[in-house]
Structures are given as structure tokens and as C-alpha cells.
Design a protein around this nucleic acid. Sequence first.
DNA 1: GTGAAAGCGCTAACAA
DNA 2: TTGTTAGCGCTTTCAC
Lengths: 353, 353
Amino acid sequence: MRDATPERPAGAGQGRPPTIKDVAALAGVHPATASRALSGARTVSPELVRAVQRAARKLNYRVNPIGRALKQGASGTVGMVVPDIENPFFPALVRAVESALHREGLGLFLCDANNSVRIEAERLDELLLRHVDGLIISPVDAERSAEAVRAAAGRVPVVQVDRTVDVSTDAVAVDQHGMMEAVVGHLRASGRQRFAFITSGEANSPSIERLAAYRRVFAGDPGALARVQVGDLTLEWGAKAAGTLLSGGEPLPDALICANDLIAIGAMQTLRRAGVRVPEDVAIVGVDDTPFARVAEPPLTTVAQPVGQIGDEAVRMLLTRKREPHLAPRRLTLAGQLVARDSTPSQLKLRHS
Amino acid sequence: MRDATPERPAGAGQGRPPTIKDVAALAGVHPATASRALSGARTVSPELVRAVQRAARKLNYRVNPIGRALKQGASGTVGMVVPDIENPFFPALVRAVESALHREGLGLFLCDANNSVRIEAERLDELLLRHVDGLIISPVDAERSAEAVRAAAGRVPVVQVDRTVDVSTDAVAVDQHGMMEAVVGHLRASGRQRFAFITSGEANSPSIERLAAYRRVFAGDPGALARVQVGDLTLEWGAKAAGTLLSGGEPLPDALICANDLIAIGAMQTLRRAGVRVPEDVAIVGVDDTPFARVAEPPLTTVAQPVGQIGDEAVRMLLTRKREPHLAPRRLTLAGQLVARDSTPSQLKLRHS
DNA sequence: GTGAAAGCGCTAACAA
DNA sequence: TTGTTAGCGCTTTCAC
């Protein structure tokens, strides 16, 4: 073989992929009949169905999704917009969605909003233009994404995942309050009493709800309520906020809850470099169970998000809504799972990895 | 404005998006003329062009990519298949590609092969079925992915990125040998002499080439050649291989090169827990500059991949090939960049972050 | 139960 | 320069 692309498997579907006409011709029927046979319509005699199927298999025929899309106005395609593909939570979510979609024969148009509401709106618009059959979106901003989401929801089924805006669409969210209670329970079980929270002030729904949940849980504990620091979801913010704890003149908290793993790790690094022992002096908990958590020193106790379930349910909702467009929007709330590692005292290890 | 989506530009495409017929009717011309006017064909009088453009703008018309795809056999869409979206290198690559494509008005179909050659082949097949205009692929396996890549390359332009198989397509790769020389030079500059390498035996091209590069660089150093351990690209393997170094009875190396950041971090954790000081006793270097590297303790010296460039160049190659299908396949090799952090001695910090 | 015909939106080829 | 025609591949009436 001198050339990397020689003659290619002898004529097999060579230049032009087989169309339904080819199949029909080979089976000796009209294309419409072939179409019906392949789509499992029951108005076709069993013999013909078999003949058509045989012909299709022989030609290695598969429907051209573009022809079908043009005819049906449906493209066999779902659009997904994530706020930030480099936030390690989202690749996991993308994989879950992609896999669930492929199980249903649907393709995924992925767009990354790069944390920008403007880009997000553009991408949604382009996806609609491409006649996606549905959209799965994790909106950048609980307020400013609303308009674009509403516009999209007026055209195709939309499922919001993880992050949500106040637009009536289907949604799959995570129970932030339950998550907070689980974390606090875990820490209290080892005797911790002086709590602090480092979180994000960004306007996305999980951040907002995590803060609300913390405030609710500690409604009777003014100290804990005072020890809240609001920044963003980065390592750097975690480090800086921990610095503030160290230099504040106050005694350190013995339990530090962080709104995500990155904050937790940044804080943990800063505290340890200042000689604070984790978990002996301060127990630290993150959220997301990104791969970082296992890598941290010590490995970080965190709350795993049910990404697989989120993906499955989002796709299921999309399909359900295609069948039943007039159902009331459903909101599904899933539970995260506490993953105990070494950054919290060990008596209550719930799961170890 | 009481409602965010009030009447919408007067009947304009409300239920039904405007078609080129609507534009043509409004402009008082034939649809074909409208099409020509909008596509910038020069056979249309300037007045008509303006009239059509005005009509299009008024109706907020944009071409229906599906109609165009059916007619032209081109979909305005590029497929991308990554071997493992949860490997933190690939989300960065996906973002780069997605952004470069959108700059050109192209959409991205993303597929994840989940490290399986079988899934990879299926996804490629589905993408071809969807009439993608091109494919950007990072093949799972340097051998076993060849057939699927070759089949795809027979149908549409293909650019291989990062990982490659021996099929003549355009490709954007990273110079593994140069990378190894930079790493070794950096370590030798601080006096390190006893080198070891922990790498992956997986059959993807960068892994293969990294091993070859190490062997070439240390061709005259039997000790360094002997201190090679081959496993996979995980934290766990790094930890295990480091354990072997510790228990081998041999003196420890003073410079440990790892094929990626995960291996490096796994190894570093194991060594430090055994009381080995990093970088005083052993300097450690990873590859990829994933976010993990900054998070590690101590922060890890590593080699950043030029993902932004890879994405840009891959898209550029795709477009070039669409225009010039018969050019010889080009292979572009880009350089990584050493990012010195605290896991190697500090005299030669090239960049700090 | 099956074939015929029409048309989704677009544009290339041809005709005027 | 512009309009007409035709057809990409598919499915869905509507006849038979």
C-alpha cells in the first residue's frame, strides 16, 4: 500500500452514501414504502418490511439526518451550553449528557459560554438556528441569563441543569440545603462547633442557594453567620479568604466549609503553610468532588454531585416533553453525596475513595 | 414592556422563522435572487442587494442551515472526537477548538470516545452521517484507531490534534522531543544527574513519543534508561511507581520526570509521605499544566501545552483544506512551554504562575 | 397495504 | 441581471 488512501473498500458506498431510493430500488418498492418499513409503521406487510430491511442492511443504509430534519423540522440533535468548560465540574456533566443522548440516537451540539452572558445568548441563538430538538443549559447568571433562556424556551424544550434561572422550564437541580445539612452534620458529629464558610458571590443559582442554606442552618449561631466570606469560585479566593481568617485576630474556626473544591484547596494550602493542621485544628470540606479533591494534601472531604443522574434525567425530561409538550414544567432535585476523606476527622467516613 | 417576549417584531417569524421566500417577497424579488443577494454573488444589482438585505434585517432572517446543508451537502458543522473528556487536558482543547470554530461561523459536534476505540469508531460514523464538513480528532490509540480515522479521512477533511495515528491527514502535534530536552535541560541546570521517568505504556502517540524522546536524550546514560517505569496516565500509577523507587534498594533519583501531571502528583504524594523532600531531595516535573499542577503541594513544575494554538491551527487547516483539497497533508508541530514552579529548584524559573 | 405526489428551505444550472 | 426550474433526502398526505 503506497498511499494512505488507496482505492478504498471497492465501491462500497463509495462516492455517494446510499439513499432511501437506492434501498427502495433494491427492494423493489417505492421509496415511501421503504421509509415506512424502516420507521416501523404497521401499514407495511411483513414481507416487504423484511425485504426493505435486507436491502438497507446490504447497502449499509442509514437515514440522512439532514433530509429528515428538513422534512420533519427535527434534527435529531440537542444543544448544550455550559458556562465554563474548564470548570472541572462541567466536563463530567458533558460526558454524562453526551452519553445519555447517544443512547437515544441524538447528537450533541456543545457550546461553551466562557462565563459570558453575551456569548451564552449568541450560542443559544445559533443552536436554535440549527433546529436543535432541545436544549440543555446551565445558565451563566441567575438574573442576566433569564432573557436568553426564556427566548429559547419559547422555541424548543429546554432543561436547565445544575444552575437555573427563574424561567419556567424543566430543570434538574441539586439539593443545596440537604447538602449543607449533610456537611454540617458530618462536622458536628466529630465535635466541631466553630463554623466558617467561604463561598462565591457570583450570581449563579447553586452559589446563591449554598449561601442561603448556610444561613438557614446557622440561623441561631451569630458567630457562624459572621464568619462568611464571599468571593468567587477560585483557588485564589480560597487562599485569600483563609489569609483573612489567619490574620483576623479572632480564633480560627475548627470547621471550614467551602462552596467548591477549588476554594477549599486554596484555603487548605494557605492554612497549612501557616502551620495549621488539617484536620486536627481545622476540618475542611469542599463541594463537587472534582478530581482535585483526591489530589489535595490531605485528600479533601467533599460532596459529589450526581452528574450521571443529572445527565440521564435531563435527557429523559427532554424526551418526555417532546411527547407531552403541555405538561407543567417539572423540577427535579437530586441529592449530592458526602465523600469523607482526610480533611475531616475520620470517625464518620461515609465513603472512601 | 411588561413581558420579556412581547409581540416580537410584528408577526415576524413568530411561530415560523422567516424563510428566504419571506425575504424575497418582502423585497419583491424571486427567492433565488434573494439567495444570491445575501450570499454576495456579484450578479445582483446593488439596489436589489440593498433591498434584500433590508428585508432580511427587518424579518431578522438568517439562513436555515439545514436547508442549505441538504442542498449543498455541507452543514456548517465540524465534528470533534476526544478520547476522554474527563482528562483535564481535553476540556481546554475543546474550548480552544469551539471558540476558533465559532469565529468562523461553524458549529461543533462534540463526541467523547470514553477511551474506547469502538465508541470512537461509532461516533466518527455518526458524525459523517450528519454531514459534518470536517473532523477534528484526537485518536484513542495510535494503532487501533487507524482504521476509523482512515475511513473518515476518505470522506471529509480530517485534522488530528495532539494524538495522531499513522494516516495521512493534516495534523497538529506537540514536539515531544523538544519538550523532553527542555525539561532535562531545566533539571540539569540545577545540577541534577540521576534521572528517572514514570510514563504510560498506553498506545497513544504522545505517550509513545515521550518515551522515545527520553530514550534518545539519555542514550548514553544506562542508569537513566534503566529507571523507566511504564504504566498508565493516572495518579494511582504515579503513586505505585514512586513506591517502587522507594523500596527498590537503589538510591533515589534526584530528578523525576513524569509523563503527565497526574502521574507526577501521585508520585510526589507518595514520596513526601515517605519523608522525601521535594524539590530538595527529588525534583519532579509533570506535563500538561493542568489546573492540578498549581494545586499540588508543592506546586508542580510542568510543561504547558499550547492548546489555544492547537485549536486555532486545526481550524485553519480544516478551512484551508476545504479550499484546496489536493494539497499534501501538512503536519504542524508546536512547542510546549516549561512552567517552572516549586517542585524543581528555583534558579531557573522561566515563568511563574 | 402500497404508490404517487408534494414539499420542508435552499441554491445551482439554465433560460430569458 | 433576473426569473424559472429542479432537486438535495426524507416523510406524509392523499389516492388507489
